[in-house]
Amino acid sequence: MNPKRKKKLILLSSMVAAVAVAVGLVLFALSENINLFYTPTQIAQGEAPVGQRIRAGGMVVEGSIERARDSLDVQFAVTDYKHEVIVKYSGILPDLFREGQGIVAMGSMNDQGDFEASEVLAKHDENYMPPEVEAALKASAETAAIE
């Protein structure tokens, strides 16, 4: 490689490195704002502002869903397996919403420490599987539980 090209190569690589560092620092400084949602632990520790519109995310706790008989009001708890937050919502839930499912809710914390949601989104993971496999997994988990 001739010296001129080498100089250019070094110049270009250092330019890319400098941009990478700058962007990295910006993202690091903004990291709290880039997170899409607050976890129940962050809410329990008071990191989430009260009264402001925020998002809360977590797993829907098994057996915590309570639906009103005469309206679309629904209430459930979300957890990150350390803390739980009660979410209150009125409206149609996405198809994937169920117990044990990850969700992200948009809304705000009220004075009682409950989360009043105006929008609920379902989150899914990358563990796609056919229905038969899921049924087999459930069956084996049940037999394991019986034993």
């Binding site: 880039i34 899409l36 989104l121």
Partner: peptide
């Protein structure tokens, strides 16, 4: 839209 319930979310 069918899975999450939203066309677009400002996620990272």
């Amino acid at each position: 839209k069918p899975t999450w319930g939203a066309w677009w979310v400002w996620d990272a």
